[in-house]
Every structure is written in structure tokens, then in C-alpha cells.
Amino acid sequence: MQESSLIVVQKYGGSSVADTGKLKQVAALIKQRRDEGFRLCVVVSAMGQTTNELLAKANDVSTTLPRRELDMLLSCGERASMALLAMALDDLGVPSISFTGSQSGIITNDQHSNARILEVRPYRVQDELEKDKVVIIAGYQGVSYKKEITTLGRGGSDTTAVAMAAALDAHACEIYSDVSGVFSADPRVVDNTIQLAALSHEEMLALSRGGARVLNAQAVAYAKEKKIALYAKKTGSPETGTLISGLEKTESNKRQWAFGHRETVVGYLAPAEFSFSRAFESIESLELNPLYWVKSGGKWQFLFAPEDAHGHAQLGSEGWASVNDKGTLTAVAHGLGQDLQAVRQTIAFVEEKTQPDQVHVTENSVTFVLQSTQILPILKILHHELTNG
């Protein structure tokens, strides 16, 4: 392989390496791509449901789930994947080496369970790429400036891949999963969805924050900041997938719609005497990241994604009241929030069927807070009306 070979960063999700058979298939795909003349840095998630299984074991032995120990436990899943993949590549005659997040130089803050990457020092990765090896990195994890193992939150392997692509000045960052790209809605619950050829970072970020599970929101935000183009593809498929980049809008004059949803969110009402500042101090002390907040009936209400709400139950012990049976539905389109007619139309479609509890408008999205049971029926209606309009 020539010294000028371009670097490609690939990330394979848990479904792509769910068992040893699939892991061998991924090894063959890596060999094929390497034979095309690329240097490869491969980020892997834990195999299949490994993370959930480890978390279940933690819940069996602990009611408090200390976050430091949880990070020590959950980071083991990706380490198993990286080592097994390196062994599979060795069988194919492909020289490779596996690194943990800390060994690959991913430095984070000290927020356990939802750490943020501060810096990437990829010196060992670069050295091994220069030796013509495939470098395999355990996703989802890093090391804090205090030398503690940290994890990056659910979907954090995407963030690992994007951060490494930026640090290596990679030619491409490819995110592989069991779906062939980004669709206009989740094809598992909505009929006649459309695969999107391209999205801007801003649109994808709004979708990810709105509950779309194709790409992690933190990863997309990092890609936007570092100007990294992402390719969302299906493992083993020749299809081109979806390009997520800095493009300002799609080429078509027709508005391109996409929808994210969460059937369930975790909600809490702050005590009536709490100002916004005091309420936010409580949230920050528990290292929680609210999705939305609004003042209702004289009280501040905050909504959290279930997968991010580590320790949210502690709010209840501090006098906060839980808000149950709520979900969110997000409509995304380029410049949507700046087009009052389009915002009005979107809200009108929803209000014809139900009265939303809350409506949040951003530059590229409109989000509705609804009863959990209403999310999927309204999603299907909204998708049909707007994508066929």
C-alpha cells in the first residue's frame, strides 16, 4: 500500500457485529475495502444487546448504580468487539491492532456515563496506520483528564468515529448499521418512507435530537463543528446511503421532510418556588441534559430522553413531581422555523387531530409534546400529509 493512501474511518454498530458470524462478515468487508487501497480506522460498538445485558446485571446487584463503576462495566462490551474483530482479521491475513478509547487518545471531561470529548491525541493510531495496519478502536469510551475510564452516552460510538475522522483528517467517515441510510421516518413504524440522499448537518442534528436513531446527536454536532461529512450506510450493501454534510439545502425546490419521534420521554415539574436558575442548578448537579423546558402553571417543566436520564429519579426525592405518559414528535425541514406559513400548516395538521401539550420551534424543526399513545398515529398522519404534499 502506498504512503499516500487515503484514510477512511468506518464505524460498525451493534447489529453489524451482533454475533461472531456477522463479525466475520465485517472482517471480510474491511479486507475488501483495504484491498481497494485505503488505510482503515475501524470503530466498533458492543455486540448486539451486550450493553443492555451488562446494564441489566448492574441493576440486579445495585439500586444506586455508581456512574464510575457503570462506565468500568459498560466499556467492556466494545473491548470484546475490538479484540474479536482483530482476531478475525488476522485469520484473513490482514495486519491489525485493537485499541481502547484511552489507548487511541480520546480525552474527555470527567462526566461519567455522558462524557464529552475534549481532545483527541491519535499518535498511536497514526503510527499503526503508517505500518499499514487496520486500527480497530473500541467506541463509546475514552479517558478523562483525571485518568478515569469514561463513556460517551448511548450511541457514543458514532461520536468516537467522527472525532477520530477529524483528528486523522480522514477522507471519509462511514457509519454502518442495519438500515441503508436516513429515511423520512422510522420505516419500522411508518409505511412508504423515503430514503433521503442527502441532509445538512443542521437537519440531521434536529432529527437526532428529535429521536431518530440512525445517528447520535452528539456525533452529528461534532461533525458539524469539525466540518466532517458523514455517510450513513447499511453494512454489506452496495447502496450509496445518505450523505450528511455542510450543504445548505437540498437541490430540489420541493421541501424535504423528515420526522423523529420518542414514544416516551421522562418529565419532571420543579417545585413552585424554584426559579429557572435554581431548577437548572438541580439538573446540572445530577449531570442531566433536558430536551425541552417550559413554564406551565407557574412551574418549570423539563423533559428528558429516557436513555439520557441517568439519576433523574433523584429529582423526585427533592420535591419534583413526575410527568408521565408523554412523548415527542419532531418535524424537520430546512429553514422550517423561519417559514411561518409552513410552521402554521404543520401545527394545523396536528391540531386537527389533538391539542399538543407543548410546541417547540427551532430554525429547522417543529416539535410537539403529546400523550404517548398519540405519537405513532399522529406521526403517520403528518408523514403522509407533508411528504405527499
Results as ranks from 00 to 15, higher is better:
Gln2Asp: 15
Val9Arg: 02
Tyr12Ser: 00
Gly14Pro: 03
Ala18Arg: 09
Asp19Leu: 03
Gly21Arg: 06
Lys24Tyr: 04
Gln25Lys: 06
Val26Leu: 07
Val26Pro: 02
Ala28Tyr: 08
Ala28Ser: 13
Lys31Ala: 13
Ser45Val: 08
Ser45His: 05
Gly48Asp: 10
Gln49Glu: 06
Gln49His: 10
Thr50Trp: 03
Thr51Lys: 04
Glu53Cys: 10
Glu53His: 13
Leu55Pro: 06
Ala56Val: 09
Ala56Tyr: 07
Ala58Asn: 03
Asn59Phe: 05
Asn59Arg: 12
Ser62Ala: 02
Leu65Thr: 07
Arg67Cys: 05
Glu69Val: 01
Met72Tyr: 08
Leu74Gln: 02
Gly77Pro: 01
Ala80Trp: 13
Asp90Val: 04
Pro95Arg: 14
Ile97Phe: 00
Thr100Leu: 02
Ser102Tyr: 14
Ser102Asp: 15
Ser102Trp: 15
Ser104Ile: 01
Ile107Ala: 11
Asn109Phe: 10
Asn109Ala: 08
Ala115Asn: 08
Arg116Phe: 15
Arg116Cys: 15
Gln126Pro: 12
Asp127Asn: 15
Lys133Leu: 13
Ile136Asp: 01
Gly139Tyr: 12
Val143Ala: 13
Val143Met: 11
Tyr145Lys: 14
Arg154Asp: 09
Gly156Val: 02
Gly156Thr: 03
Thr159Ala: 12
Val162Lys: 05
Ala166Ile: 03
Asp169Ser: 10
Ala170Tyr: 08
Ala170Asp: 06
Ser177Thr: 11
Asp186Ile: 10
Pro187Lys: 08
Val190Met: 00
Ile194Ser: 10
Ala198Gln: 13
Ser200Glu: 05
Glu203Met: 09
Leu205Gln: 04
Leu205Gly: 02
Leu207Asn: 07
Leu207Ile: 07
Gly211Tyr: 07
Gly211Met: 09
Ala212Ser: 14
Arg213Asn: 11
Leu215Cys: 05
Asn216Thr: 10
Val220Phe: 08
Ala221Val: 03
Ala221Thr: 08
Tyr222Trp: 12
Glu225Arg: 15
Glu225Pro: 03
Ala229Pro: 08
Tyr231Leu: 07
Lys233Val: 01
Lys234Ser: 05
Lys234His: 12
Ser237Gln: 10
Glu239Phe: 06
Thr240Glu: 14
Thr240His: 13
Ser245Tyr: 01
Glu251Pro: 11
Ser252Gly: 11
His261Pro: 07
Val265Asn: 04
Tyr268Leu: 00
Ala270Asp: 03
Pro271Leu: 03
Glu273Asn: 14
Phe276Thr: 14
Phe276Ile: 12
Phe276Gln: 11
Arg278Phe: 11
Phe280Gly: 09
Ser282Ile: 09
Glu287Tyr: 06
Leu288Lys: 04
Leu288His: 07
Trp293Arg: 04
Val294Gly: 05
Gly297Leu: 14
Gly298Ile: 04
Trp300Ala: 10
Gln301Arg: 12
Gln301Gly: 10
Asp308Lys: 07
Ser322Phe: 02
Asp325Pro: 00
Thr328Ile: 03
Thr330Lys: 06
Ala333Pro: 02
His334Phe: 12
Leu340Met: 14
Gln341Ser: 14
Ala342Asn: 00
Phe349Ser: 08
Glu351Leu: 01
Val359His: 01
Val366Lys: 00
Val366Trp: 00
Leu370Asn: 02
Ile375Tyr: 02
Ile375Phe: 08
Leu376Glu: 14
Ile378Asn: 01
Gly389Val: 10
Gly389Gln: 09
Gly389Tyr: 06
Gly389Thr: 12
